[in-house]
Design a protein around this nucleic acid. Structure first.
Lengths: 94, 94
DNA sequence: CGTTTATTTGACTACTTTTGACAAGTCAAA
DNA sequence: TTTGACTTGTCAAAAGTAGTCAAATAAACG
């Protein structure tokens, strides 16, 4: 599940409105709608604020958000999986 | 080893000059220098051309180049490893 | 139905980033 | 001291992005 879907689900399950999320983040409602549908990207700060707004721990949300960004840079290229493995390998040692 | 280092090593081992690489890629010498030092990013097309220029298969080069971009989007954040694993997991099933 | 409230869409602007060139620089070798 | 390889800084143009606004849909609901 993508970052957008995740926060939408959480927001809805708590009966919160886009408008409220927007007020909390201090942005326009349309913008939050776009975040939830993956049409815009959240900044790290916004993710943290969202976690706060949704009253959920930030870290898992950040992980999903980051994963989304990674998928995005890979962009379905067929070399993606190999590249991921490579990064993971060199990431561990250090 | 990063993408830049990789292509520099290959170029040097074949006694090719920056100037020649630049001509082949149809860019300026300074630009290739920056690519090799990671100060600029190559486009996918440029990577492919480079492979051609270096007379080496493109795929492994693309993998390294992609891995570089991924590392870049993770940018040492502590959630990076978890995010990588998450992407890898969802990437396999598809 | 008709009205109101929530969400989506698209166009648009301002801002930031990136590309690649150019000129001037360092450095080594001859 | 000239020459050839590479590096560095600066910049204009191009491309990308964040966020807004107004108008369009879609629910919800009496």
């Amino acid at each position: 599940m993508s970052f957008g879907e995740t926060i939408r689900k959480q927001r809805e399950s708590k009966k919160l409105l886009l408008r409220q999320a927007a007020a909390f983040l201090e942005v326009d409602t349309a913008f939050v709608s776009k975040l939830e549908r993956g049409e815009r990207n959240a900044s790290r700060e916004q993710v943290i604020k969202l976690a706060d707004f949704l009253d959920t721990p930030a870290e898992p949300l950040i992980i999903i958000w980051l994963a989304d960004k990674i998928s995005d840079t890979i962009n379905n290229s067929k070399e993606g999986e190999e590249a991921l493995k490579l990064v993971l390998k060199t990431y561990k040692k250090k």
